[in-house]
Design a protein around this nucleic acid. Structure first.
Length: 421
RNA sequence: GGAGGAGUGCCCGAGUGGCUAAAGGGGACGGACUGUAAAUCCGUUGGCUAUGCCUACGUUGGUUCGAAUCCAACCUCCUCCA
């Protein structure tokens, strides 16, 4: 196991060179061997995602960008949706068990996640990316058979040495056998994909290292040379985990976070993180990335807009990205007309006078009435550019501007143009 | 199997019968300053049809006018013994 970081030796493969340059490599099981393999011809690589939530979020974007680059450079990505493993719940680096999900919930989640994945990798054609569900094989196993065939390939001694497991034990929290066996399932996934699709590389988040290594080792016992690659943990320059906003996770699916909300997230990137994000989440040439991140002071805001528009293009498409950029300019800089409201509510809600607090909650700027009330009382809420500090304020048709819209903002960074229809 | 210790809000952590929706810190959000950045200072930080009501200190029951605090059983973790 070699820490990749920046290998001194020259790389033979374009793929690994690009991934390193982009900052998408954290650890690799065997850099030289993987580099060689990637330079010899097309490689099939996979990244897996459990269906524990209804949508993927920005944290998932790094393995997905890795898949994208690999595909772009002639390799074939497989995206595995964890219909099987989601029934268990990955305990890696978590201090508590995930709530067990119903199969029905899992398949609903998978359907949504699938749509996001299809935007990020190209599924078309004979060389297109593959989308598979590990329930396909995991659901087929019978207990004794599984224990005999695979249980014999793992030792508890080895499994206990992984940090992903130790963190739970060290935190003195219970780790059930069910969760403990998760890494076996992920290892079996890798072997199964190797057998079925000649997949030799698994890409995952840095928390997946233990699970990935188990797969590589299982493969070796089966006489196969498999490779593992982890992407770094997405952190801000100040060291905090990135990807959370006041409203929660930054979801990739438009039903969970509007393209404009998504764009806004990137627009609000801290100065110190702009370069890193351009590298990781856009496909702009490195020279352009360097030019943009060298901008100083307020000029850097232009780079942030480019970042936001580029990432939104990849995740939601060019139309949505352009619309979000226009909305941003109109709402914040007062430039141009907004074509589309950022949020829509049924006109009927205005009939009996809509409470201001209710409105703030309805568009997702506060999680509860109480939170909305505090925001209003603290002077953080503006209606049509005017601060409103009365929590009892009701909204009527008289508050609407042209085209039955009204402007609402919470704080400096959250602005909405609410349309009624 | 036995003895002892522990489980608190988003996280860490104080609290051993009423003054506790629970000190303090972190994080997050809001305000001021700025560039929709950072740093700094100030404020907020369970929910609701809100001068009241509901939910909350591992789980379930009990004692009490009153329980995070006392008792019992259970779950989980740690330490020592077997």
């Amino acid at each position: 196991m070699i820490e990749a970081g920046k290998p001194a030796t020259k790389l033979k493969s374009e793929a690994l060179a690009v991934l390193l340059e982009r900052g998408l490599v954290h650890q690799c099981t065997d850099v030289e061997a993987l580099d060689k393999r990637l330079s010899e011809g097309p490689v099939t690589a996979y990244a897996g995602f459990d269906a524990t939530a209804a949508s993927l979020h920005v944290g998932h974007l790094m393995p997905l960008m890795t898949m994208r680059w690999l595909q772009k450079l002639g390799h074939r990505p497989i995206v595995v949706l964890g219909g099987g493993t989601s029934q268990i719940g990955d305990p890696s680096f978590r201090n508590d068990a995930r709530p067990l999900l119903e199969e029905r919930q899992i398949s609903a989640n998978i359907a949504t996640i699938r749509r996001s994945v299809e935007r990020l990798v190209d599924m078309d054609g004979p060389d297109g990316a593959l989308l598979v569900d590990n329930a396909e094989w995991l659901n087929e196993f019978r207990f004794l058979e599984f224990l005999r065939d695979y249980g014999s390939q793992f030792t508890v001694n080895r499994m206990m040495t992984f940090d992903s497991v130790r963190s739970r034990l060290d935190a003195q929290m219970p780790l059930t056998v069910l969760e403990f066996c998760y890494m076996m399932l992920q290892a079996v996934d890798f072997l199964e994909l190797a057998k079925r699709h000649d997949c030799v590389l698994q890409v995952g988040g840095s928390d997946q290292w233990g699970n990935i290594v188990n797969g590589v080792e299982l493969g070796r016992r089966d006489g196969r040379k498999l490779h593992g690659l982890t992407v770094p943990l997405l952190t801000t320059a100040s060291g905090a985990k990135m990807g959370k906003t006041a409203a929660g996770a930054v979801w990739l699916h438009p039903e969970h976070l509007s393209p404009f909300g998504f764009w806004q997230f990137w627009r609000n990137t801290a100065d110190a993180d702009v370069g890193k994000c351009l590298r990781l989440f856009t496909e702009l040439p490195i020279s352009e990335v360097e030019r943009l991140s060298a901008l100083e002071g307020a000029e850097l805001n232009e780079a942030k807009k480019i970042l936001a528009t580029q990432v939104t293009t990849i995740v939601h498409g060019p139309e949505e990205a352009r619309a979000a950029l226009q909305q941003g300019d109109a709402l914040f800089a007062g430039e141009g007309e907004i074509l589309e409201p950022t949020h829509m509510l049924p006109l009927g809600r205005l009939a009996d006078g809509l409470g201001l607090l209710e409105l703030v909650v309805a568009i997702g700027f506060a999680a509860s009435n109480g939170e909305a009330r505090r925001l209003v009382e603290g002077g953080g809420v503006r209606l049509n550019s005017r601060i409103v500090d009365d929590p009892k304020r009701r909204i009527g048709t008289g508050d609407l501007k042209a085209n039955d819209r009204l402007a609402l903002s919470v704080g400096k960074r959250r602005r909405a143009l609410v349309g009624f229809a």
